[in-house]
Design a binder for these strands. Sequence first.
DNA 1: CTGAAAGCGCTAACAG
DNA 2: CTGTTAGCGCTTTCAG
Lengths: 358, 358
Amino acid sequence: MPDHTRPPDKRATIYDVAAEADVSPSTVSRAFSRPSRVNSETAERVRQVAERLGYRTNPLARALTTSRTRMIALVIADITNPVYAGIVRGAQETAMHDEYTTVLIDAQESDRLERAAIERTMSTVDGIVLASSRMSDSAIRMFAKQRPVVVLNRAVADVPCVVTDNPRGVRRAAEHLGELGHDHITYVAGPQASWPNGIRWRSLLEAGMELEIKVRQIGPFSPTIEGGERAAEELRARPATAVLAFNDQMAIGLIRGLTRMGVDVPGDVSIVGFDNTLAADIVTPGLTTVAAPFYAEGSAATRHLLTMIEGAPGHAGRPMVLPVRLVVRHSTAARRSAGRARQWVRQPPAPDPAAHRS
Amino acid sequence: MPDHTRPPDKRATIYDVAAEADVSPSTVSRAFSRPSRVNSETAERVRQVAERLGYRTNPLARALTTSRTRMIALVIADITNPVYAGIVRGAQETAMHDEYTTVLIDAQESDRLERAAIERTMSTVDGIVLASSRMSDSAIRMFAKQRPVVVLNRAVADVPCVVTDNPRGVRRAAEHLGELGHDHITYVAGPQASWPNGIRWRSLLEAGMELEIKVRQIGPFSPTIEGGERAAEELRARPATAVLAFNDQMAIGLIRGLTRMGVDVPGDVSIVGFDNTLAADIVTPGLTTVAAPFYAEGSAATRHLLTMIEGAPGHAGRPMVLPVRLVVRHSTAARRSAGRARQWVRQPPAPDPAAHRS
DNA sequence: CTGAAAGCGCTAACAG
DNA sequence: CTGTTAGCGCTTTCAG
């Protein structure tokens, strides 16, 4: 069993290579500098000697002089949420392609944790991608003053942002429901502090106006399956024939809650989610949902960050907007007659006594 | 818009603090050393001056002299797989608690990528947790010689390992199916290279022996929903009444594929999965599955790694084993008569319900 | 293109 | 407990 108390074997340094190749340390340094601006045969020979000695440039020492670590931080709100998998991978691959390493920080939905983690990491990274940050705009701007920062899924003034086309996604959902004969859409809200939540509701208001569909909002609820189930309870008191949920998890909770109450989805109620997570395809009925290009989000944000790190100005004007699309499955259907639609409230409630009020 | 071409404001160094507090740099250094072994009033004053100057110790410079970065790497096979969310969080929180930062590496199921990423990162971290590594034992041992390494979900000789109690999980599943009257279990295998896949099959062989249940294996299939659907196809030719799948994803694919073929789950076939991912609770019928303590896995592996980093020997004897439990839902039921069970192959396939369009 | 010299910010030996 | 003196491994002037 190896003893790790002290570094087992000292790695070859630039001096070892220099001695072996009979050149000065600077020459070795130059042979490994990036972009490799040296192509002399000496440099080539140095590289071969280095290879033979198993020399690897020490990123820490390099960082100390260049103040560039070739690491970036990716902060996500909740690693448990599958939407971040695509973002992480997009960011990671983009970073890796440019030989950057990604430090992942899971904020666990906590403003405080997020700040603390960033504060500790900031000096070690060349830049930060903030995906669905829970911090205040001013806190974000403060960090952005010290390091290049790109914000994802949120618009923050004076900081470069990447968002998906929420208005268009909501619009497409509303159109879809309208075509199915629904003249009223209930928005089941997610966390009040969530930026997408706000814009989705506002977009629905707008779409409702244009498409002559009435809209209303219930909530906020937690953006989870349980949250959706609680929303289903509330819907019992104020029925609807068409529901747009803040995200897939809530939509799934709604389906589950309503089904348990004896309400048929989509027969009695059509439900649309947001995100197109894997679960949307697993639940019964399959969930109609607005798909966001997660991989592209992570990738775009990171690419932008990298150009800023390389010295680009970092255009902080309006956010970069990524397209979305509506994925139609089986949780949406033509509206039944108004009478029938109303009926489900009167269905005998499934074994759940707590739910009868007035 | 801030210009990030050069670091905007030089941060205060140890020298600035020393000058301001009228002490030597070493005194400042000591005031910030860990564990803070200095409690003199001088040290306290130094800290206050530092606070006022906004001084933060530069981890890079510190690392250069101590060769300790207080960072660890966590390598996972596939960030898309929800199984890793819990592991990541467990690892992260444990690391954070000891003020370590976690670098997440997504190997994307690729041996090559995994190696490359580790090679680039190794010198920057104090230790590595390898969760479901796809590398060869010898490659892992090679890394383990250079840095403390803990392996998760796999047993590698001479390297500390953390695994879940696969034999017990399989045994519980087999007992459960046996109690339901099943005398034959088909194992639907995952990737051949996967260590858990091997041990699960071997455990099933053993359990079958003891419980007098016949077992057989089909596959390997890809450990995804699609893989499970393909397995369902294969089951058509060689029907079964009880199936143990390598993981939940495959089990869900099986449910979906069989259902589409007109086979009733659990009426005709009982299905058990592995992992107890969120999806197991979403699919219809709810999936009976072996639950693993992901958070605890990540946490235990990291805790062990940290003790090794602090100089502990790193007991590489037998792996540390974490308990599992069987979560019974609705995908398993009492076996029908043998005749009935055979029948399902001849059912006409239902129309494909998964017709997506955008 | 190459070499010499100076230092990035911090810690680790020593003395006192 | 504190100060002094050397570096950690690399990059970066500045000369040649």
